[in-house]
């Protein structure tokens, strides 16, 4: 009987000890600062604004074209650079070019045709070259008389002739890379 008692006691002690095993927990720190990982903070390129609509280069074209409505003119042709059709939509004051991609047509170019529209920063056709630098800075590459501002994986190309802005183009870099 005594033996049974001692065995029982030892068993209880063992069970109790086992329940206390691993009784310390180390918390992994939560609420880490995700500033560097915030997808919303990822670099964005220059965006063309028309009314309430923002047109970002390389974004899917369908919602943009739906919001813009009927174009003044439409042209399509087999693309020499992409698999599929190049599509050019001409609206009042600007042109939108689209290229084919597996997810659907994407915005390749927005081309400002006259000075009745402006970039989101306020630049228009006909503005002087000093305004370009005032709005976009000096950090650009120069190709002839063209200033190319690269941002967020796209380019804004501003052609200046005789001291005046003659072309403003938002351009995709989708077909720029080569071996």
């Amino acid at each position: 009987m005594k033996k049974i008692g001692f065995v029982l006691l030892a068993l209880c002690l063992l069970l109790f000890a086992a329940s206390c095993q691993g009784d310390v927990k180390v918390i992994e720190k939560s609420g880490e600062n995700a500033a560097g990982n915030d997808p919303a903070g990822a670099a964005e390129g220059y965006v063309f604004q028309t009314g309430d609509l923002s047109i970002a280069i390389d974004s899917l074209a369908e919602p943009v074209l739906r919001a813009l409505g009927e174009p003044k003119e439409y042209y399509e042709a087999p693309s020499c650079a992409f698999e599929g059709l190049d599509k050019i939509y001409t609206f009042e004051h600007f042109e939108v070019d689209c290229y084919p991609s597996p997810e659907g047509d994407r915005i390749q170019t927005v081309f400002l045709m006259d000075d009745l529209v402006a970039t989101a920063e306020g630049l228009r056709i006909g503005d002087d070259s000093a305004r370009v630098e005032a709005l976009y800075g000096k950090d650009c590459s120069k190709v002839g008389t063209e200033s190319v501002y690269t941002k967020g994986g796209m380019k804004m190309k501003i052609m200046i002739e005789d001291g005046r802005v003659t072309f403003i183009t938002y351009q995709s870099c989708a077909s720029d890379d080569f071996e």
Binding site: C20, D23, V24, K25, V26, I27, K29, S30, G31, E32, N33
Partner: peptide, 12 residues
């Protein structure tokens, strides 16, 4: 747990 440890910082 009877004891919990955490590294100093912004912890929730």
């Amino acid at each position: 747990y009877s004891r919990v440890e955490v590294e100093a910082g912004d912890v929730v």
